[in-house]
């Protein structure tokens, strides 16, 4: 309990950085994740997360620096390139989307690993920071990182607010958006850019592989609770932040524990909880409704039969009563 209070007081500057950093990441991933999920492109985010690695490595090689903005630029370019190649292959070949995503993901990532290991072997000084793009190092988030995350989140939020209506129509029905003359290509470009941006900063906390979860899970969990986009966005942000805090707290109490995987587990727990308990779309609610429905039909059937029974037949009436009681008790 004490450790929880100590954690929440944010008195430890290290903890403060981790908490603020992961909070910002959780929030931005939650926001853009809603749109990736609604547009049925959840796994595209996974591909982008993997594809960012070679961009980061090349940016490091070319720019000779580990400055966050240089690496972010490389990440942005590589992420965009992966999206373009996926789009090209799906449209121009008989390969299906799932194969194309897997293909681009693994080849880009292979390229990233190859570059990363080559850089490490070549003994270029101070390359060690690149590792965090692979596994994520929430524990080593610096104030410089946090300020960059802050700018990214600000950019994401501003773009979302400015083009909210457009994104909404796009997520709902792309063809319709085109039909009513919306600048679909511009909207897609903006949405993809903020997605790549969010992923590029997000992988620094949870790593390449687990980024998909940060993107998908808050949105998927939020989807169970509501049918309204604005509510879903708020819920997704809330879930992202909650999970980020949970992850940060666990690695605060047990320092050997990695933050990223715990954030993912927290998200999984939130998702399963939502899936079971959400009132309208949840599993338990649905079962309850199905059960009530079946019971209602059974009772109505009994009523129908009862109406057919001639007035004098008490024996039949009694049997029907017994049957009804059985339904009420057991069904």
């Amino acid at each position: 309990m004490n450790s929880l209070l100590e954690f929440l007081s944010l008195s430890d500057p290290n903890v403060r950085m981790v908490v603020w950093g992961t909070t910002l990441l959780g929030a931005s991933a939650g926001l853009v994740g809603v749109f990736t999920l609604l547009r049925k492109r959840a796994l595209l985010g996974d591909a982008v997360a993997h594809s960012i690695l070679p961009g980061v490595c090349l940016a490091f090689l070319v720019g000779h620096s580990k400055a966050p903005y240089v690496l972010l630029l490389g990440a942005l370019v590589a992420g965009w390139l992966s999206l373009l190649s996926i789009d090209f292959l799906v449209r121009r070949t008989k390969l299906k989307a799932d194969s194309v995503i897997g293909l681009v993901l693994s080849v880009f990532f292979g390229l990233g690993i190859w570059l990363l290991t080559s850089i490490q072997q070549s003994g270029v000084a101070s390359q060690s920071g690149l590792d965090k793009f692979l596994f994520g190092k929430a524990a080593s988030i610096t104030s410089q990182d946090v300020s960059m995350f802050g700018w990214v989140v600000l950019a994401v939020v501003v773009i979302l607010l400015l083009f909210y209506k457009g994104f909404k129509v796009l997520a709902f029905d792309e063809d319709y958006a085109r039909a009513i003359g919306m600048p679909v290509r511009l909207l897609e470009f903006l949405l993809s850019t903020i997605t790549v941006l969010s992923i590029a900063v997000g992988i620094q906390a949870v790593g390449v592989v687990l980024m998909a979860s940060l993107l998908i899970a808050p949105a998927a969990a939020a989807r169970f609770w509501t049918d309204r986009l604005s509510v879903m966005l708020l819920l997704a942000v809330g879930m992202g932040i909650l999970a980020a805090w949970a992850g940060a707290f666990i690695s605060f109490t047990a320092p050997s524990m990695p933050t990223g995987p715990w954030i993912v587990l927290a998200l999984a727990a939130l998702t399963v909880f939502s899936m079971l308990w959400a009132p309208r779309r949840g599993v338990l609610g649905r079962w309850l409704r199905q059960w009530r429905y079946a019971r209602k039909i059974a009772l109505e059937n009994v009523k129908c039969i009862e109406d057919l029974v001639p007035t004098g037949r008490l024996d039949l009436k009694r049997r029907i009563c017994r049957h009804r009681r059985k339904i009420r008790l057991f069904k």
Partner: peptide, 11 residues
């Protein structure tokens, strides 16, 4: 290139 074999094979 003295890099990861697995990564290079993917490339």
């Amino acid at each position: 290139t003295n890099g990861s074999v697995a990564g290079a094979m993917a490339v």
